[in-house]
Design a protein around this nucleic acid. Sequence first.
DNA 1: ACAGTAACCTGTTTGC
DNA 2: TGCAAACAGGTTACTG
Length: 270
Amino acid sequence: MPELPEVETTRSGIAPHIEGQRITGVIIRQPRLRWLIPNDLAQHLKGRKIQSVERRAKYLLLNLSNGTLIMHLGMSGSLRILPRATEPGKHDHFDLQFKTCCLRFHDPRRFGAVLWTDQSVADHPLISHLGPEPLSADFTGAYLHQQAQGRHVAVKNLIMDGKVVVGVGNIYANEALFRSRILPSRAANRISAARYLQLADEIKQVLAAAIKRGGTTLRDFQQEDGKPGYFAQELLVYGKAGEPCPGCGEPLKQKRIGQRSSFYCGKCQR
DNA sequence: ACAGTAACCTGTTTGC
DNA sequence: TGCAAACAGGTTACTG
């Protein structure tokens, strides 16, 4: 479900409700996520205030005075702000309670994570090895081109590799490659610097546009208030195999690259 | 170092 | 209609 725009939409949605608020309760209903939710979590959190809500890659970071709560939504996770007394439903694994509201973590597939660190987040093993943020100035076409040197993998796999750049998942990788007219299966080291310049630019543009629309809702992504995101209407190729290419009208193709469905135009993309 | 694959889970869609 | 297989937004860990 969530790629970077969806996580950023979640971050900006929950922040105003919980920043500056004191945690009054911690409820763990199902600790078995990607990793176990630490069972001593409550003693770190209870009574502390949320100082800020940040995002690094697809990780949400709730900063407290004594450490950071690290959350990941995995493939099917979502966070919602609800009235305190709302009855939990199926797959509502974790709640943070505040005076007037509750932050609820819902995740059917349980690929998400809720972790604690009292060290510097940048040094956390899940985060220390990550590449630059795609919307930062560090991420450029020149950087991408340099990363591609000596890499034989499909360019789609390169841009989805978190060590190269974070936050580009399957939807937006397909979209950015179509907009750049680059074939997703093309070997990373067989693409010119000029084309990488455009690719980096299109990645930034498509992510920024999706954030503006509140993310992409395919099945069940919802914003913190339960509303859908509206970027799905602007997808050009993702999930559209067989439909006419918006550029040339040829039917769009679908093929698996690195175990993930890829959508592209065999005529427009080279 | 790199590339490819299996694995973690449940729910929904597709195909016979 | 029923059932099984395939597939789904992510990422780590293992293999060669």
